[in-house]
Each structure stands twice: as structure tokens, then as C-alpha cells.
Design a protein around this nucleic acid. Structure first.
Lengths: 149, 149
DNA sequence: GTTATATCCTAGTAAATGAGTTGGAATTAA
DNA sequence: TTAATTCCAACTCATTTACTAGGATATAAC
């Protein structure tokens, strides 16, 4: 019941892009340095974000990534689902033919998994990337002040 | 972000014990048969439930397991935590020294993981085993009727 | 038009985890 | 005494995780 590094690193990458892509494209190298994540691995995570059309890229020198939409139009749910797949604790909640136990319609636990799933999605669908970018700017600002003071 | 079979099978085992331990002790063998779970594997899951003092056992012939408390005094949260460990999506939410990334105090994502964690625990702490046992009796009853009618 | 800086793409790999299996010791009701 | 049961530890096999490695392709700047 844990998120993998895909979700954790990938979200940090998205916040990073949200913070720094206003002026120019953000390169994988610069994200990797700021976030202390392996460049090659980050590349794969950002590929997932690109596939989900959450970021756009430009190749070649001075290329890099930027958000495909304004940060307040990107939900945390979209980001996490792009990185981790659906956020259901158990597959029988979605009606994919495979991975479903044979008795799923006659099993009381199904209702439980649905409730958990709903509550997770309720949370993540109502937080935007902008919320997180703003929060991170705020934290960095306070940390900066603490260093000065 | 998926529950393992520990959580899924283990919960089904708890519901099963809740349904059938009113009269006599419930053996692993009988649970395994009803729930279609490997006996040997189930043994290990029930060991976790016993360690968490959610079930009591008696050994020897006609031995087996029963609930350690009334089913309405056992929450789903206790059961899942016994089987799966804490239900936080990311370890930095709890302040264990290990597994915590170095910047966890200055990371906007921490608030997100906390919110998800809180919402999951809100759900599971407010469902009791009795709710699930009743639900399962109801489902079985309806299924039975469908077969008759 | 060359070069440095990027993204893009595929394959490999070592360690951990998941989901069991195997085999036997200890206990107890009948 | 025996059959049924819990208890316990070790082993196994497949999958997933978290990377690493290496090269192809594109492009801005000189």
C-alpha cells in the first residue's frame, strides 16, 4: 500500500517544472540536480508524464520540458495516475476482466475497497499542481528567511 | 499503491471467522476451503492477526480460531494495519528515522501524502468488522434466494 | 556545418518483494 | 493412541522496482 518512487519522484519533477518553466524550458539535468534524482531514471518518469500529455517537450540544445496547461488546470490525481496507474487499492474495483477474483460480485470487501478508492480520489482530484507549486515556493521562502535571520 | 494478498485474503479470513466462530472455533482448513486460499499461506496471514491480538486460537483437535473481541469492537483499520503495516502511501508521513528522504521537512509533497493517509484512515477506522460480517450475510442470503427463485 | 546540449528509445540488471510451498514439531479432543 | 489441529522456520520461484548503459535523433549557437 505504498507509492513507488515513480509517484514520489515524478510528482517532485512536476512541481519543479511548475516552478521553473515560466521563463524557459526545464531540462532533465537541472531537475535531477535540484531534486537529487538520477538523470536516466527521471527521463523514464517524465516519459510517463509526457505520454499523459501533462508536459510538452522541445528537443535539442536549450530544449527541455514545460507544463502543457496552466498549473491550476492540472490535478494531482492526473499526475499520480499517469505515474502509478489507477489509485485503487484493489483491482476488482474497476471492472477489468483480468485480475478480478471470481467472487467479486458476492464479496463484502469490494465495498470497502471502493470506499477507500473514492476517498483517495476525492483528495487527489481536488488538489491542483498550482497548490503544490505555491506551497513549495512558500516553504523555500521561509527556509531562506531562516537562513538569513 | 495496491494492497497485497495479505490484506485481501486476511480480511476475508477475518470476515469468515466473524461469520462462523459464534458456535465453535474455526479451523484454517475450513476457512481455506470456503475462501479458496492456500492453507499454508493462510496460516501465515492468521499469524499476523493473532500477533495483533485480533483473534485467539486453541490448539489440537477441534481447535481453531475465534475473534478476540466482539466484531463491532474491531475496526477494519486494525485488521488492515495488522496485515499490511501502516496505511500511509509514503513513509515520510510517520516520523520513523529511516526511510525518510532527507528533505522531508521542506517538501510540499509531504502535505499531500498526509492528506491521503488521513482520508484512508478516516474510512477504515469507521468501518467495523461487524459491518462487513452483516454485509456478507446479506449478500449470501440474496445469492441464496436468487438460486432458489 | 560543426559542436554542444538536449530529448528520445531500448535493453539490461541487481536487489527486494510477493506469493506461495515444504516439512516438521507441539498440542489436544476423542 | 490417533487424528486433527496450531505453530514455526526455511526454501523457492516469478515479478517488480529502481535503477544503469549506450546510442540515435534533433536543434540552438557559434
Amino acid at each position: 500500500m505504498k507509492l513507488s518512487t515513480k509517484g514520489r519522484y515524478g510528482l517532485r519533477a512536476m512541481i519543479d517544472i511548475g516552478m521553473f518553466s515560466t521563463e524557459e524550458k526545464v531540462s532533465i539535468k537541472s531537475i535531477a540536480e535540484r531534486q537529487h534524482i538520477s538523470e536516466n531514471y527521471l527521463e523514464q518518469l517524465i516519459a510517463l508524464l509526457k505520454k499523459a500529455k501533462l508536459v510538452t517537450s522541445s528537443r535539442g540544445a536549450r530544449g527541455g520540458y514545460s507544463l502543457s496547461r496552466a498549473s491550476d488546470k492540472i490535478s494531482l490525481g492526473e499526475i499520480l495516475r499517469a505515474l502509478e496507474g489507477d489509485l485503487n487499492p484493489v483491482d476488482c474495483v474497476t471492472n477489468n476482466k483480468d485480475n478480478v477474483c471470481e467472487d467479486s460480485d458476492s464479496c463484502a470487501t469490494k465495498f470497502v475497497w471502493k470506499k477507500i478508492s473514492d476517498s483517495i480520489n476525492e483528495v487527489v482530484n481536488n488538489i491542483t499542481l498550482k497548490d503544490l507549486v505555491d506551497e513549495q515556493f512558500e516553504i523555500d521562502h521561509l527556509t531562506q528567511e531562516a537562513h538569513i535571520g
